[in-house]
Amino acid sequence: MTKVDDVLSEVWAATSDPPAPLAFNAAVLERIARRRALRDIAFAAMLAFAVWAVAMALGPVLAAEAGLLNAILTTPAVLYSLQIVIAGLAVVYAVRNMPVLRRSVWPLGLRR
């Protein structure tokens, strides 16, 4: 056996089967939960923005050309209410996930 083989055997022995911390799986699952929460929030925000953009773009057209129903749906009050409801849903979602968010995005770092 050469010295190189000895060194490699020592390295394998020193690094094989590290003591399994019970927290390892939990830490991975927490990272996954954080990522999932951030992804969901990003998706909700994008969806809300898309709805808002469509409503803003089509609102005046529909109001001008369509009948009473469209006119009601696209009045500023209805549009603002819609935006408020969407924003409210986003806030409710964020609050429900607050324990995860607090650990992940506050203060500033995305990693623990």
């Binding site: 390295v11 690094t15 094989s16 089967d17 590290p18 399994a20 390892f24 799986n25 991975v28 699952l29």
Partner: peptide, 18 residues
């Protein structure tokens, strides 16, 4: 996925330590 993690945790961690 947790079962996969439990099964391959040791190999992944050993490799990372190398």
């Amino acid at each position: 996925f947790t079962a996969l993690m439990t099964r391959h945790q040791s190999a992944a961690r050993s490799f990372a330590r190398r």
